[in-house]
Amino acid sequence: MLRPPRNRVDRRAVRVWTIELLFLTVPVAAGAVAAYWIFTSHPVWLGVLTGGFAVLILGLALAAPHAYRRLNRWEVTDEAVYTRTGWFTHVWRVAPMSRIQTVDTERGPVKRLFGLADVTVTTASSAGAIKIEALDHELAAELAERLTAMTQATPGDAT
């Protein structure tokens, strides 16, 4: 079987993902509870259901980032970029250095707050983009620079 890539994502990523997920789930949970309070005549079973739903998605928002960090790994060797992602479906991606076309770094607002960045590596394939998530931003910049240097060294248009 494929061995896991060597590196885990930065520890701060857990906090970032938690915050990002809470941005999504808190309004939904609050909306559900508010809808229950305002629009219904407070039947007990629906209350239990709504409460359960709210607790479930908030719990997921708190738990998922830990699992996500455990599952997402990455590695860059002289020859290739290698990542593993996925929860129900495990996905391993490999792109050889010689076929990399562009290297992008991206920093969302929350990630910027925590000093993190994503690096996306694309190849000539429309299906071949590889994203390394939540790196320390200095490391991300260094990685992008290194990858760019390496890919510039290979001749041809990498198709």
Binding site: F88, H90, V91
Partner: peptide, 9 residues
């Protein structure tokens, strides 16, 4: 230009 290996549940 690369490989993607996937394994669903």
């Amino acid at each position: 230009v690369g490989w993607t290996v996937s394994e669903s549940y």
